[in-house]
């Protein structure tokens, strides 16, 4: 509750921030409920682990936020992430230096995103279809590289994966968390402090108007898919650090988790409204649910899906109510 109060007083237009505040509130509530119910849940490490276990998801959600803010959608993120794990694993196995391998992964992801953006913008094919094809393409490419899972044995990579930081006594972080947080900060800066970011919101609000105002709508519409492609590739790299392998069946269905996180985070699928911070909160809520279910122990894993579905429903109905009241 206190979260909401503080925000509505600070912020000039509270209604815009209401969904994000609600997501944070739900996060605090679910985490609080877990703390009351399970011993050891409320430890800083459990909180930190939410970031450690979901670093890649945060990065993917950031990219998806850009796309959804323009009113588009990107179904390819899970597949591109999987392709990234595969390229990383395969190139490392072939003896490429880790940095070159990382560059290759990021370049591939960005190019794929760019390509999809170009098709969407210049041929006016719906984003849903183009990114669906992109998803098929990326998954298919994984299996063209290798049908089997390829494990990563490169020492530098392993060191990056297993290396930890201890900023405070009793809390360990991985490098992935730092990367994810950096991505969030950069994304927030880009969205709110650059003309590119403003145009992203403008395109989502009214593309026709944005075009008449002389904004580079085409460049932005293509750009967000490139951003999403880059984030998918980076998320895939973090995932390969997490799994230490490349596999075509990694991250299956992850695009749904990412979209769910973004929607739960208060971003409207119709575009123009939403914040990166909200998407991070959305990821944290989904992560908490997963942690809760694993703490419960007796509940089977499929309950996660059901709870995520229910959460999605609750938030969508809530947003709908907010929008209706505003009109």
């Amino acid at each position: 509750m206190s979260v909401m109060d503080v925000r509505s007083r600070q912020v000039r237009v509270p209604r815009r921030f209401l969904p994000v505040a609600a997501t944070f509130a739900v996060f605090v509530l679910t985490f609080g409920a877990g703390s009351l119910r399970y011993e050891g849940f409320a430890s800083p490490q459990v909180l930190t682990n939410l970031f450690v276990d979901n670093a890649f998801l945060i990065v993917l959600a950031v990219g998806m936020t850009f796309v959804i803010l323009t009113g588009g959608i990107d179904l390819s993120v899970g597949a591109v992430a999987a392709l990234s794990t595969m390229i990383a694993a395969a190139t490392l196995e072939a003896g490429w230096p880790p940095l070159v391998s990382v560059a290759a992964v990021l370049l591939t992801g960005t190019c794929l995103g760019l390509l999809m953006g170009l098709v969407i913008h210049h041929f006016e094919v719906q984003p849903f279809i183009v990114t669906l094809a992109g998803m098929f393409l990326a998954r298919g490419l994984c299996f063209l590289i290798s049908v089997e899972s390829v494990s990563i044995t490169d020492p530098a990579f392993r060191a990056a994966a297993t290396g930890t930081l201890t900023p405070v006594e009793g809390v360990t972080l991985t490098y992935s968390v730092l990367i994810a947080l950096a991505v969030v900060l950069v994304a927030a800066h880009v969205l709110h402090r650059t003309r590119f970011g403003r145009t992203v919101y403008a395109v989502g609000g009214s593309e026709a108007s944005a075009r008449l105002m002389g904004l580079p709508t085409g460049r932005v519409k293509v750009g967000v898919y490139a951003v999403s492609g880059f984030c998918s590739a980076l998320g895939g790299l973090l995932f390969s650090l997490y799994m230490l392998s490349g596999y075509g069946l990694h991250a299956v269905g992850m695009e749904l988790d990412v979209i769910a996180a973004v929607v739960v985070g208060g971003t409207l699928l119709s575009g123009g409204v939403g914040y990166v911070a909200g998407s991070v909160a959305g990821v944290l809520v989904l992560g908490t649910v997963q942690t809760l279910i694993s703490f419960e122990g007796t509940l089977s894993s499929w309950w996660t899906r059901i709870v995520v579905g229910v959460l999605l429903l609750v938030f969508v109905v809530f947003q709908r109510a907010v929008v209706r009241r505003a009109r």
């Binding site: 094809a133 098929f136 998954r139 298919g140 490419l141 994984c142 299996f143 063209l144």
Partner: peptide, 14 residues
Amino acid sequence: APNAALVFKAVVVI
């Protein structure tokens, strides 16, 4: 390979 068939699907759709 069955899974790699996805590449062809993507190409035809596009």
